[in-house]
Design a binder for these strands. Sequence first.
DNA 1: CTTTTTGCAAATCGTTTGCATGGAC
DNA 2: GTCCATGCAAACGATTTGCAAAAAG
Lengths: 126, 126
Amino acid sequence: MKFSRQREAIKEFMMTRKDHPTADTVYTHMREEFPNISLGTVYRNLQLLTDIGELQKVRVGDGLDHFDADTSLHYHFYCRQCGAVIDMDMDSITEINDIASKTFDGYIESHSLTFSGLCGRCVIRS
Amino acid sequence: MKFSRQREAIKEFMMTRKDHPTADTVYTHMREEFPNISLGTVYRNLQLLTDIGELQKVRVGDGLDHFDADTSLHYHFYCRQCGAVIDMDMDSITEINDIASKTFDGYIESHSLTFSGLCGRCVIRS
DNA sequence: CTTTTTGCAAATCGTTTGCATGGAC
DNA sequence: GTCCATGCAAACGATTTGCAAAAAG
């Protein structure tokens, strides 16, 4: 893999963000630094960084791919009002794969746990 | 809401299935009974049945909408090899929303837990 | 006769891809 | 000079939508 300024910028941008930007959000921000960067390049690099384990794809059920620079096992919250994707501050249940395996005929590799409802901001407004 | 033969057939079909068909699968099967049914009608009715609580939309991270006539809280397994979506035979952790609420600033309405790996068939072949 | 639902086709949205050019090494 | 990465635009797949005609009430 060859170095690319665009990929480096995308990686750095992702590491500054605690929320979980979509490709389009990344694209919008990259345009400030690279006015000619294309959506294709953003998608390619997000996918590539995911493949080499520097990013994690987060799918919370809104149909969009979100990306997370924190690749550790942790859980997410999806606000069905404003669409925010937020990290949950709770221990991950590492043993749950083993528990589930006992009543499952196959190999469980991972799990994902996503909460949904109204985030702090939205719960106040409602 | 008015009665429609198509919607009734879709509902009945969904109740016979323990897997979690996509709109396209439903469409294919409906064509046997209604050779002229359109994809739009299938999508519209799946969405409508979901809205009135007769179906549940299941998103396991493959980018497709799966539908489930069992609307109770339960967990799913997604086989990343063959794409199968399977119900997990385990108790649902009803208290997990409350546990998560304690360290979360907002209103948690629901959670979804999805496992992934290789299903029984695929684990044998590999 | 009014209103909902249908079938069809076109539109939309997020994402992927082919290809000629430019940058990395 | 050889490859890999880019920008651009076209293609793609799943889903949604506008509309005139058909079915329900």
